[in-house]
Design a protein around this nucleic acid. Structure first.
Length: 507
RNA sequence: GGCCCGUUCGUCUAUCGGCUAGGACAUCUCCCUUUCACGGAGGAAAGACGGGUUCGAUUCCCGUACGGGCUACCA
């Protein structure tokens, strides 16, 4: 029988939401929606020393922006509350005790200093990082070596202790990953991971298994970096709830840095000049700022589309997908095994495609906000829309519109007269003065404007080609932008006259 | 070091034994455009290496190399 599909994304609220995290959310979301299942957001805040103010709210903001709303969460409620692990603290100890009682785990009294000492002592060239494993545990202070009375004494004396899993000495642990197929590990080579910390909080290892069980998770997706600890989780499932109950695992490929190799990090973004987080994030402790895709000018549709394609495709040559299409077509079987280097140029291409695809109304407000932020307040939405329509082909990011369209709203501050000065003469000055003063006689639109411009040029015996660039520079300030007569039409008669006159005085 | 995972154009990828190895981004050339783009046409560009299996391997298997991940009382 098949369980009802319930998936979860379980971030630790310690900082900005990385695109790898958003992609994990996406795949969770797509899988849940496709199967009529439930998407849960669980906050894994078991490390109190890493608590970061605002990080949790930030995660919800990011998911909101992306349109990947959880069905159950701290914010949205649900039958399996609480969804914050710090609020579930009491439930974990019980399972840890059960494991100890059944001989699958043990108390360890070693202090951090003693652990350090152990690592120093056993560190060799061949073994740079000794593990707390089946060999080492015999030489440490734990309930396996201390004897029952001593353990009792320590516990009742309030000595701090952790609970560690007792990895079997020689067992093959295997499972079938939905993406990688069968994966196997030798238990002897996995260390005795801490399950319950001295402060009574579980580590990820215990918490993920207990909560996935309690929340009836059917499929567990996470990044590939978790693969090495999978055997611990498999064993815990076996000891606690039975392997038949275990969700199906899918370890997602990593998103790699564009140059060189390795996981993409915030530092790579800073170094190479592109966002790595979904939205702007400022670390409240360090004041460290990181820019987000949203603020850089990405559309959520494009962002999600691009992320979906990093590690998956539908087997056809289609690259642009709406979220609904993704929900329909997504399949784990087509998720790749290997990591993908992040390509910012391609990311911008996706955004440009979405700018062209979506109706201007869908993103007009974001551009308006960006303009306002940079000191241009736009009153008329109709004009804005017309302008956006005119320049959208040359903007990959929403923030590109500022440079591409600000001259529609205010006269250019610098005029590139140098480009036309060389071939300038009195006849041209006269031409522009006369043309500008004839505006009252023409209907104000691009077509008639262009006609009158060309007519006058030929009657004056000046090549139109000699006048087009000058006109553009007068109105725009430089060699760019859409058709000049469209620009003139939009900025209006008197503004056009003023800009021509202003430029003429500079020549 | 150990363990685990991976390996097709510069990058993202298609191919589930028949390939003249396809597409997209980037790049180059040309066309369109009296600006810059968009757009259109075309070019260059890949199967890490060595063994098998097979009539036939990019595709399956095994090694090697390379890359990555993990190796905390962090997730």
């Amino acid at each position: 029988m098949t369980k009802k599909v319930r998936v979860r994304f379980a971030p630790s609220p310690t900082g900005g939401l990385h695109i790898g995290g958003v992609r994990t959310v996406l795949y969770n979301y797509l899988f849940a929606k496709q199967h009529g299942g439930t998407f849960i957001l669980r906050i894994e805040d078991t490390d109190q020393s890493r608590y970061v103010e605002g990080a949790e709210a930030y995660i919800f903001d990011c998911l909101d922006w992306c349109g990947l709303t959880p069905d159950e969460s701290v914010m949205h409620g649900g039958d399996f509350a609480p969804y914050r692990q710090s609020e579930r603290k009491d439930t974990y100890a019980k399972y840890a005790e059960q494991l100890v009682k059944n001989g699958f785990a043990y108390y360890a009294f070693d202090t951090p200093e003693e652990l350090d000492e152990m690592r120093q002592k056993f560190k060799t060239h061949d073994n740079p990082s000794p593990q707390y494993n089946y060999e080492i545990r015999e030489r440490m202070r734990n309930s396996l070596t201390l004897g029952e009375e001593e353990v009792q004494r320590l516990v009742s004396a309030g000595a701090p202790y952790v609970v560690r899993i007792k990895m079997p000495i020689n067992e093959e642990i295997k499972f079938t990953d939905m993406i990688r197929g069968e994966v196997s590990f030798s238990s002897a080579l996995v260390d005795d991971k801490v399950l319950l910390k001295a402060d009574g909080m579980p580590t990820y290892h215990l918490a993920v298994v207990v909560d996935d069980h309690l929340m009836q998770i059917s499929h567990a997706f996470r990044g590939e970096e978790w693969l090495p600890s999978a055997p611990v989780h498999i064993l815990l499932w076996k000891y606690l709830f039975g392997l038949e109950q275990m969700p199906q695992w899918a370890h997602l490929p990593l998103i790699l840095k564009p140059d060189g190799n390795g996981k993409l990090s915030k530092r790579d973004g800073d170094r190479l000049g592109f966002p790595v987080f979904a939205m702007d994030w400022t670390d409240p402790r360090t004041g460290d700022k990181a820019t987000g895709f949203k603020e850089t000018g990405f559309l959520p549709q494009a962002f999600v589309n691009m992320l979906a394609m990093m590690g998956w495709n539908d087997g056809t040559e289609q690259e642009i997908f709406t979220i609904d299409e993704l929900v329909e077509k997504f399949s784990l079987e087509r998720v790749h095994k290997s990591g993908a280097k992040f390509d910012y140029e391609k990311a911008k291409w996706y955004n440009h495609e979405w700018i062209k695809k979506l109706a201007v109304d869908r993103w007009q407000l974001a551009v308006k906000d960006d303009f306002a932020k940079r000191g241009i307040d736009i009153s008329g939405d109709a004009k804005l829309k017309r302008v956006l329509e005119l320049v959208k082909d040359r903007c990959s990011l929403l923030t590109d519109f500022y440079e591409q369209a600000k001259f529609f709203f205010e006269a250019p501050k610098t005029i590139d007269v140098d480009s036309i000065k060389g071939k300038w003469n009195e006849e041209k000055t006269a031409f522009f003065r006369e043309w500008a003063s004839s505006f009252d006689k023409v209907e104000w639109n691009a077509v008639t404007l262009e006609a009158s411009f060309k007519e006058r040029a030929s009657s004056k015996n000046i090549k139109v080609g000699e006048l087009m660039l000058p006109l553009r520079i007068m109105l725009v300030g430089g060699k760019f932008g859409p058709g000049v007569f469209d620009i003139a039409e939009v900025i209006g008669k008197s503004e056009t006259q003023q800009r021509i006159e202003h430029a003429l005085r500079l020549l």
